[in-house]
Design a protein around this nucleic acid. Sequence first.
RNA 1: GUGGGCGUAGCUCAGCUGGUAGAGCACCCGGUUGUGGUCCGGGAUGUCGCGGGUUCGAGCCCCGUCGCUCACCCCA
Length: 419
Amino acid sequence: MNPKFQAPKGVSEYLPPRSNLFDYVSRTLTAPALAAGYELIELPIFEDTELFTRGVGESTDVVSKEMYTFEDRGGRSLTLRPEGTAGVMRAVIEHNLDRGQLPVKLYYRGPFFRAERPQAGRYRQFYQFGIEAIGVNDPYLDAEVIGIAYSGYRKLGLTNFSLHITSLGDAESRDRHRSDLIKFINSLNLDEETKARAAKNPLRLFDDKREEIRSKMQTAPLLLDYLNDESQDNFTAVQAALKSIGVPYEINPHMVRGLDYYTGTTFEFVHKGLGAQSGIGGGGRYDGLMETLGGQDLSGIGFGLGIDRVLLAMESEGCVPTNIRYVDLYVIPLGVPAQSSAFALVNELRHAGFVIEQSFGDRALKGAMKAADKSGARFAIVLGDAEIASGTVELKEMSTGKVSSVTLSTLASELAKRS
RNA sequence: GUGGGCGUAGCUCAGCUGGUAGAGCACCCGGUUGUGGUCCGGGAUGUCGCGGGUUCGAGCCCCGUCGCUCACCCCA
């Protein structure tokens, strides 16, 4: 009750049995990326602080107030990664991964860190799975990336979510819109704090939660209306590609992403059963990022999915699978001589490919059988003096309770036959 | 960073206008010399988050503090 040490504030921890689910969720989300030829990139948890200030953008909340930054013993400023894309781009540039065939297709997963006030679905250490496709600007690639995220969610059984997409267009379209939008915002009567937000990024006002601001923004100029022909054609093509693979979406011209590097297609998956933190994944295209970080001028597209939130979403939909943990056999030795035989038998059968747990300590058979039940094992084996003498084991099928005597030499094949 | 709610057994929680702690689940043992899921009987477990104050007496009231949680902000 009063532990001397507690986990740091706001971190997510996964303990059994929920940890099994967490692992299942991340593996399932990854599968569609593997199926599309994306390869794992395993990167450091901390990077040069400047990578994030330059990459993610000084004006973002992530950089300006949410980073875990520290100095190492050599006086270098390092930061626990708050997102994945900047690190991937750094590695691609540093190791010249973009010198071969394009696009470079990578996926990553692991912990990320933001020093925010924790709440439902928002943690200081959280887990993301993400992919990046770098070096090709093709609407079909945009749709592939979005489709990979979508099929991950669907494989997990999620249905109560929607995909919002929009286009931020190219630099030319954005500049024209931005100046009109700023003019519009300046004409509004806003409080100081809101003005400050608008100064950082005028688009932010579009997703303000206050009704008064929302209604004022009703008539604001929309970026989508400012797309030039090329950007518009591209966005139309992305939509057509999504339709062709059956990915439902809604165009949301008010969508705002928190990181500065996005251009062109951007998207967000929103789950309807979660609390205030309802985004279960999002991403988009980034045209200038790689050059900003000192690499070639290549475009890229990617997403990041919050594994913690996906699990919460599954729990809210009640589509959490049972029986993730699979055990073939639970072995119960009775008495000292049986313990050594059982220990060796377990080892042998595990090498033969069976998933086996064994009972340790000298608990009563009744208790051990109870543990066998809890383990979910399909079979239990009782091995005592009588069995050792006759070279057999008692094999119990847990679902029926039927017990039969099986000779040791045929045990493996008997188990294989029955499963 | 700002606000609301809450800290009692391993878990979920009850505890009246202050009289020094309880339930369910889980766990262990037994009913069945060596057989689980149902049933019955028995058992262990708490510095009532922490510190201080009021009181004859505090889980309950007051102050402080720490933690958790939800929301704002922002986002995965």
